[in-house]
Amino acid sequence: MGNSIDSNAMPRLAQSRLCDSAVDRHQNQSPTVANPSKLLILFFYRGASMAIVDTSRRLPSRHILQDIESFEGTGAVPSFPAARPEAKPEFLQAALQTMQAMQQQETELLAKAKAAADKARLAEWEFHNAVMAMKAAVRGHFGPDSDEAQAVGYKKKSEHKRPRRRAA
């Protein structure tokens, strides 16, 4: 049996590579696919185990609330078969507590960040007002056409363009 595929004896990585090559052949519409039923089986195997999930975005709050309700509903199911370790009630309880602790920490840090942003904004305004007072004091003491007024950021009065009359 040279071309037969025994999925129990083949490692997952080899199945994945075989699936990739079979899908590539299928997408290219190549007539070289030897057994289309095995292609279909491998395609479903790959699709079921390799779901693409974007964990960089936040879950909508309604999904989280539905998940919490589902978790709380497991109390009505006396002993459900949890074949996967992450589906066991102890793991679910720990995951819920971890999520709630991280959300609380995030809320506290956001509050601290907002408070720090407010303090920074107030300090920026205080500094700006102090600079404006200094510039006004320099201009008042040395005059609007002085080199000192120019040094603190003003333009000398003599360097301003004079308004021209418009031709009628």
Rank of each mutant, 00 (worst) to 15 (best):
R62N: 06
H63I: 12
I64Q: 08
I64M: 10
L65R: 08
L65W: 05
L65M: 07
Q66E: 09
Q66H: 15
Q66R: 15
Q66T: 05
D67P: 02
D67T: 08
D67Y: 03
D67K: 07
I68R: 06
I68H: 04
I68G: 02
E69H: 00
S70W: 15
F71W: 06
G73D: 13
G73P: 10
G73R: 13
G73L: 09
T74V: 02
T74Y: 05
T74R: 10
G75T: 03
G75R: 02
A76W: 08
A76V: 02
A76I: 00
A76Y: 07
A76F: 11
V77I: 11
V77N: 03
V77R: 01
P78M: 10
P78T: 07
P78K: 10
P78E: 05
F80M: 04
F80R: 03
P81T: 06
P81R: 05
A82C: 06
A83S: 05
P85A: 14
P85K: 11
E86Y: 14
E86M: 09
A87C: 10
K88Y: 09
K88L: 14
P89Y: 01
E90F: 14
E90P: 03
F91G: 00
F91A: 06
F91T: 06
L92E: 11
L92K: 14
L92M: 15
Q93F: 14
Q93P: 03
Q93A: 11
Q93S: 10
A95L: 07
L96H: 13
T98R: 13
Q100R: 04
Q100Y: 03
Q100H: 04
A101H: 03
A101W: 03
Q103D: 08
Q103S: 07
Q104F: 01
Q105I: 11
L109H: 11
L109R: 13
A111D: 10
A113M: 01
